[in-house]
Every structure is written in structure tokens, then in C-alpha cells.
Design a protein around this nucleic acid. Structure first.
Lengths: 360, 360
DNA sequence: CAGATCCTGATGCACGTAAATCAAATTCTG
DNA sequence: CAGAATTTGATTTACGTGCATCAGGATCTG
């Protein structure tokens, strides 16, 4: 059996109360005694039983998520997963005692986001997770929260200058490079123009993807020229207009990299065009639209990040920060998923059969 | 606050003892009363506090892993992750109260594996996880365990005929197809021979990858001919010999797909050959060797599955089965990771800074 | 209707930890 | 050395659930 506080007390020759004081860093222990207790902890390999501790404290971890509103399918999928983590009945094991709440603010609206952050911190939550917009007022808000002892994790789009505790999302520079590498190999030998459609360059993830992509394409060196980046504001209608003009006016278009949202518009433009379609199309995030486009061959590769993983990871990490505990960075690393027609995951499953123990 | 058993008792107008009898499916409750209690559970949305329940039962989940011995780097990485999950100090949150034990048996030895399975089941563990070899005696052993109420999960290589409760690993058919799709795109236009090096076709994962690969290549239709499959028994020396002969005797070799282990041998052969190297090389599993080969351009893509995810997922799922609880299939789906030079993850990290609360 | 059987309630201990209270022992201060 | 301050011990309650025991009531059986 694992050692308990009682074993520590016996081993150190002190009382339970003193062990408790040391373990919870309470005052009123001579440093000599403290050392004795810590030595006993070492010797016996004591590890606090977090479940029992939380039970005793009847501690719950209030965690606030702040996501952009709007019809971006990826953000809505993320929202769905956040809600699932917040639902005790649907919550998978290991995410006990969290109370998740969720706020949406208009996308790309830095003042609104900063205000929402400050408001979210008002009732001392255990942690805040936010899809960041890169702006000074947002960074300031994050710093304010941290100064008040509230850990903050950024999701999807980072804000390193704010000193946030953690970023749950992919390495967007690497994602851009990957897109570039795929594009280069898919176009091996051919010459032509390559277009990039972004959402907004005020989103750090979009900027980083662009940088990585440009870098990989430059290394390629072959006859591929990168066209000036287009900004579609993640809006399907605007993206569709941009893509249509691109297809009409750029006869030597060899590839398109869409690194933001609004791919519905891009797919529509590709499906309707009478011009020859570009040889390689790479987009981001798996949705019903991009999945179908991949199956139909309108899109050649989808780079993605798993919104379920992001939601669960953010909760785990924020809880670890709130308790000053360790977490496993390898487990929390969000992978860059590459989907081709051949490795599309099955469409969306429900939970496994709930043979709940309430029956007989 | 979440409702507790006390709330259920009050709501249903019965005593705590009766609620306990219903919740734990114990005998001695009139069905009318049982229904009243269940209705109260429904109404209040009661969810059992598993942490408190396990504390009360002082339940631990003994989980046994059976892995192949030998120097296969992927299996050794899997072993390392299994040991980490078994270590209370290193274990990431959410995997509480498990006692992991680990046995290794010689690879590809079905009788030894079957014997190890039966032995592992002797002291009634909460679950068994095993890398399966496809053989009747292994399937029979798994069925025996299940008949005794012990849930079994297969890892990496499946054994569906055994009726195992769960498979923690990738969809190997899809992995083979993905390799084929990548190969086809990487070789777009060119003609030539494509070689496949497997470990052993008595491993189901290898057979499935081969099937998927052949299928994708056939669909391609272009001038690519698939050479007869080679079996290297996952042994670097044998793989090296096979690859050297291949490179020497097959002048029109356009691609190599290595779907088993022993890639160290393949990389050596590629590095040393004086013949022109094949245009596309795809291998499985990320190790120091394959990582370096990818960086040096000897290998073009690595398909992989995350051993850490597999180890953690197996424990979560087996625990859920042991308790008859739900789990989230999406969370437990093992992804097919595609690594290119551009999206290699950072080399191997330690746990996050352990600001343990034992200090002051 | 006596006795057996079944259903239900009441109660208490246990799990490992947190946290509070009060008393006693030790050390420090003047 | 008295008095205050600090450190330590002992004890209790609580968290939500599991599990066992005992007693009393209801229902059934012969």
C-alpha cells in the first residue's frame, strides 16, 4: 500500500497535525522539524492522494473559457467539447471536480476580449482559458489576472508576450512549414503561382502559419512563386469572392494554402469554377465541409488540431497550475494532424455504451 | 453543488441504505421502491463521485501489460510510457489508483504469449493489455480471461476474433492507405517499382497495412508496380540485408514502404548505397533513427502512433470497463500521425517544473 | 395466527486528507 | 524567572461513498 500521512507522522516521530502543517506549507513549524518531516516523505516515497485531498477540501475548480462567437466551425466544435468536459455525466474520467463556464465574445474584437477577461477573473476562478487576439489590451488583461494569482492558458492562438502560463494549441510555425513541405512535394517538378488565404494577420496563429509556409516554400526554391497573401476574415462569403477572382485571374495557379477559416467559401469556388483547378489545395481544420471536399478530391490535405484534446488539455493543465502540481508536457502537446483522403477518422461518434450501474 | 446520495434519499423519501442498495444493484429492494429511487436519480441528475467511491472502497485497479521483449524501439518506448503511468509520482493526473505491472514475452511466440496471458489473469486483475499475435491459442486465452470477467485490451496489433473489449492502436488499414496515398503523390508522374518491407505477416497490423497500401497503390493505377513483399522479422540486420539486395538488384526502384520495425537497418542500407536512392521512402514509428533519417532526407515520411497515448488510453479504458462506466471513443482514438521533416515534434521532454508543495 | 421471509431504516465505521480548536510543551524576551 | 510567544500534540469534524450490522415492520406461508 502507498504510505499515508499517518505513516509519515510515525516515521518522522511527530504528530499528524505537524505533518499536515508541513505538507500544506502552513506556519508554525520549526525548520528542524520541517526537515525531519520532509526527509520522511522522501524516504517513504509519499505522494499525496489528490482525490482524497479534494474530497476533504470539497474543492471544485471553476474554470472559465472565453471563445470567439460566430459560425467558425472549428470554434463551435471546440465549444461543444468544452461543454462536454463541463458536463459531469458526459465528462470522461480524470477530469473530476471541475465546473466549467463558457463565454463567447465577437471574434477579432480586442477591447471586448480584454473586458471579458477582466470580468471572468472577478470571482476568483481556478483558471481561465482563452482564444487570444494579439493586442496590447488583451496582454495587459492577462497580466492583471496573473498578478491576482489566476493561471491563464491560451488556446489555438497564442499570446506569449502576456506571460500566460500555458498554450494549448499546435506549433503554428511548424504547421505552416508542413503545409509548405506537402505543397512542394505535391507539386514536385511543376512551376507556377501559389496563393495563401489567411483570416487576419492580427491573429498570431495565422501569421505564424504564413511565416512557416513561406519559409518552406522558399527553401524549395523550384519554380514556385508565392502570391501576396489574401485576407478573408474567416468569412465564407469573402473567402469565396477572393478565391473566385484568384481562379479567374491567375492562370498559372498551382496551389492554394488556406490557413484560416471560411473554407466553405473556398470549396464552393473550387467546385463551381470552369478553370482548371490548382494541383494542390491545403486547408486547416476538419469540418463537415473540409471532410467532404477531401473525399471529393477538391482538397488534397487538411492540417488539423483536435478540439477535444485542446479542451481537455486546457482543463488538466489549469488544474495542475492551480494546485502547483506537475503535468506531462508530452501528453499535453497538441499534435499537428495531417488528414488525407486515406486517413480520415470516422465521422463523429457518441460515447461508448453507458451500461450505467443504476440498472439491476 | 452536485447532488449526493443524501439528496437522492430525501428526494425519493427513502433511507440512505436503500439508495445504496439501488445504486450498487444489491438485492432486497422492492421494484416499486427501486423505481422511485431511479426516478430521483434522473430528476436530480445524480452522478456518482467516483473518487469518493474509490476512496471508500480503497479500491486500486491492478492492470497488467504484456509486451514483446527485444530491442524494437517502439515497444521499448511503449514500455517506458507504461512504467510512467504506473509510477504514482510521475503519473499525470486522472490516472489515479492504478497499479500497473508489466511482463515481456519473446516477440512472435504465440504459445509463450498465451501462457503469459493465462498467468496474468490468475490473481484477478482489473484488466489486461496485450500486444497480440494472431494465433488461435492467443485468441483462446483472451476468451478464457473474458469468461472470468477480466476485461482485455489489445495494443498496437489487434485480435478481433478474440472478442477483446477494446483495441488501442491505429486503424492499420487506413495507415497503409495513407502510406500509399503519400507514395503516389510523392512519385507523381514517375514510373517504377515500389517495394514493401514487413516484419511478419502473422502480425495483424502488418497484414492490414500491406492490404491498405496495395489497395491505395492499385487505385493510383499509374506506372507503379508493387514488388512481392519482403519479411524482415523486425530485425535491423535482416532488414539491412534485404534492403541492400533490393537497392542493388532493382534499378527502377522508385519507392520503399517499410511497415514494420528494424528501420535502423533500412536507414543504414540507404546511407551506404552507391546506387541512386528511391524517390520516396515511407516508414513507421518515430525513433531516434527514423527521426534522424527524416531530418537528413533519407526518409520522406514517418507514419506513427503515440505510445504515450496508447499506454494512458489502455489504462483509462480498462478501468472504465472494470467499473462498467462510459468512456469517450473520440478521446481514445489513436491518431495516425504523419511526420515530415517540417513537423517533427521536439525530441523528448521531461515533466513540467515540479513546484511541489513540500517546500515552503 | 405463529413463524418465516422479505423489505426498509438507522447507525456506525472506514477510506486519506483538510482544517479547526484547545491544551501542553518548549523556547524566547525582558 | 515570570510571562509571552512560539511550536507541537491530541482530538474532532467533515468530504461522499461503500459496506456491514441490527432492529423493526410488512408480507407471506402453512
Amino acid at each position: 500500500m502507498r504510505p499515508t500521512v499517518h505513516d509519515i507522522a510515525a516515521e518522522a516521530g511527530v504528530s499528524l497535525a505537524t505533518v499536515d502543517r508541513v505538507l500544506n506549507a502552513r506556519a508554525g513549524v520549526r525548520s528542524e522539524t520541517r526537515l525531519r518531516v520532509q526527509a520522511a516523505v522522501e524516504r517513504l516515497g509519499y505522494v499525496r492522494d489528490v482525490a482524497a485531498a479534494n474530497l476533504a477540501k470539497s474543492r471544485i475548480y471553476p474554470i472559465r473559457f472565453i471563445l470567439p462567437s460566430g459560425d467558425n466551425p472549428f470554434m463551435r466544435a471546440l465549444e461543444a467539447h468544452v461543454r462536454q468536459v463541463g458536463n459531469p455525466a458526459l465528462r470522461p474520467g480524470g477530469l473530476e471536480r471541475v465546473a466549467v463556464s463558457l463565454d463567447c465574445v465577437p471574434p477579432l474584437d480586442a477591447p471586448a476580449l480584454a473586458a471579458a477577461l477582466i470580468k471572468a477573473g472577478e470571482d476568483e476562478p481556478a483558471g481561465i482559458a482563452v482564444v487570444a487576439v494579439e493586442a496590447p489590451e488583451v496582454a495587459a488583461a492577462v497580466r492583471t489576472l496573473q498578478a491576482r494569482g489566476i493561471p491563464v492558458a491560451t488556446l489555438v492562438s497564442d499570446l506569449p508576450a502576456s506571460g500566460r502560463n500555458h498554450f494549448a494549441g499546435i506549433d503554428n510555425m511548424a504547421a505552416g512549414r508542413t503545409a509548405g513541405g506537402l505543397m512542394r512535394r505535391f507539386l514536385s517538378g511543376s512551376r507556377g503561382a501559389v496563393a495563401v488565404i489567411a483570416g487576419s494577420l492580427s491573429l498570431r496563429d495565422h501569421r505564424e502559419r504564413l511565416d512557416g509556409f513561406a519559409q518552406a516554400l522558399r527553401e524549395a526554391g523550384e519554380g514556385l512563386t508565392l502570391l501576396p497573401v489574401l485576407e478573408g476574415e474567416d468569412d465564407p462569403a469573402k473567402v469565396e469572392a477572393l478565391a473566385k477572382r484568384l481562379l479567374a485571374e491567375q492562370p498559372d495557379l498551382a496551389g492554394i494554402y488556406s490557413l484560416g477559416a471560411g473554407d466553405r467559401g473556398l470549396v464552393r469556388a473550387l467546385a463551381q469554377t470552369k478553370m482548371p483547378r490548382p494541383q494542390a489545395v491545403v486547408v486547416h481544420e476538419l469540418s463537415d465541409h473540409t471532410r467532404q471536399a477531401l473525399e471529393e478530391g477538391l482538397v488534397d490535405a487538411v492540417l488539423a488540431q483536435d478540439p477535444g484534446h485542446i479542451a481537455r488539455s486546457a482543463v488538466r493543465v489549469l488544474r495542475a497550475f492551480a494546485d502547483g502540481l506537475v503535468f506531462d508536457p508530452a501528453q499535453e502537446r497538441i499534435r499537428i494532424d495531417i488528414f488525407l483522403k486515406d486517413n480520415l477518422p470516422p465521422a463523429r461518434q457518441a460515447l461508448s455504451d453507458p451500461h450505467l450501474p443504476t440498472g439491476e
